[in-house]
């Protein structure tokens, strides 16, 4: 944490004093606790480039900061449901990573996605699912349902955390009521609102920092991303992850080069670099998410190859929603439900 802060301060200092040389530098703006130090070390050694990493904690924070300009970042990792906004607002540079040397390594299902047709802007960084995590020492019943958090059993009441990523929470509640992703149906959303408002007194917190608090016993259950769940289980085998049978989201975070990047060539090198299976495996080994690069499994640590958190069974895959940007009219309703939930 402190090291990252120091790096961020150093980056700002360099950016403002003009000491920074155009070549030999790369500034990455990424989610916190998400960037493999080994990967960065290897990139630095291979290309003689000094890499600086700055953290963010939500898509909205990243979008707001990049939009203001003057940030000095070359690369960011928006989620796929935000990427179309970045493209539409002209924040990202068309670097055509789909034509790069290592692009052949992309898994076919990630090579031409709806959110970036033809991969004109982005490269997959990590991908995963949203599900529920339960400490099975506390609750021994079935956990493959959103009911664990929205209509919780007595053992879990007062010990549940909800990761406050608004779109994920609303999506989960919509699925819990059998609705469709991005629905703006008011009858359905009324049920969604009522369910969330009724469940909230049974939650203990709405926080992003789940790994340390699940392992430390402050939470007994939480909504979470699968890689985070795997990191928890590796510290406490009683912590189990499940994909709810009512439906869940598949998401990906994607590396893009920013339009006002100062180190475009290095940034392009980096996009190509992370499509190499061995390098992509480093990303996964650290953050514990899959990566969308063919052949990277061979380089992954043993405990990931068999991890149920990472492998999505084919029958469940059929019920999954690919995360996407919801239209403004749905988004506005979600925001109002969210505010009402917070009071």
């Amino acid at each position: 944490m402190r090291l990252k802060t120091t790096l961020a301060v150093a980056a700002m200092f360099l950016a403002t004093t003009g000491l920074a040389r155009a070549e030999g530098e790369l500034n990455i703006f990424n989610w916190g606790n998400y960037t493999s130090p080994e990967l960065i070390k290897k990139f630095e050694d291979t290309y003689k480039v000094k890499v600086t990493i700055t953290d963010y904690d939500s898509n909205d924070t990243a979008l707001a900061k990049v939009r203001q300009g003057g940030h000095g970042f070359d690369i960011a990792m928006p989620s796929q449901n935000y990427l179309p906004i970045w493209i539409e607002e002209g924040l990202v540079l068309e670097t055509n990573p789909g034509q790069m040397e290592n692009a052949k390594n992309m898994l076919p299902e990630w090579a031409d996605p709806e959110f970036d047709p033809g991969r004109k802007y982005s490269v997959p960084w990590a991908l995963g699912t949203v599900g529920v995590v339960v400490n099975t020492d506390v609750y021994k019943g079935p956990i493959d349902t959103w009911a664990v958090v929205f209509d919780p059993p007595a053992e879990l009441q007062g010990k549940i955390n909800i990761v406050p990523e608004m779109n994920d929470v609303i999506h989960a509640a919509i699925k819990f009521h059998g609705g469709e992703m991005c629905s703006a149906d008011k009858t359905l959303l009324k049920q969604v609102r009522d369910t969330l408002v009724a469940a909230k007194p049974l939650w203990v917190a709405m926080e992003y920092s789940t790994i340390e608090k699940m392992v430390g016993g402050d939470f007994a259950a939480t909504t979470d991303w699968n890689g985070s769940a795997l990191r928890q289980r590796l510290q406490n085998p009683k912590i189990q992850f499940a994909l709810p049978k009512e439906g869940f989201q598949l998401w990906s975070d994607n590396a893009v080069v920013l339009k006002d990047a100062k180190n475009v060539e290095n940034a392009k090198l980096f996009l190509n670099f992370i499509m190499d299976p061995e390098n992509a495996a480093m990303i996964s080994a650290f953050s514990r998410y899959a990566n969308g690069i063919k052949g990277s499994e061979a380089f992954m640590p043993e405990d990931m190859k068999t991890a149920p958190e990472v492998m999505v069974p084919a029958d469940l895959l059929a019920t999954a929603d690919y995360s996407k940007t919801c239209p403004p009219e749905a988004q506005e309703l979600y925001t109002r439900i969210w505010t009402e939930l917070q009071k």
Binding site: D60, T61, M166, T339, Q342
Partner: peptide, 11 residues
């Protein structure tokens, strides 16, 4: 935190 929400996820 309410003010922060409006500038972030509240949009």
């Amino acid at each position: 935190t309410l003010i922060e929400l409006q500038f972030g996820q509240g949009r």
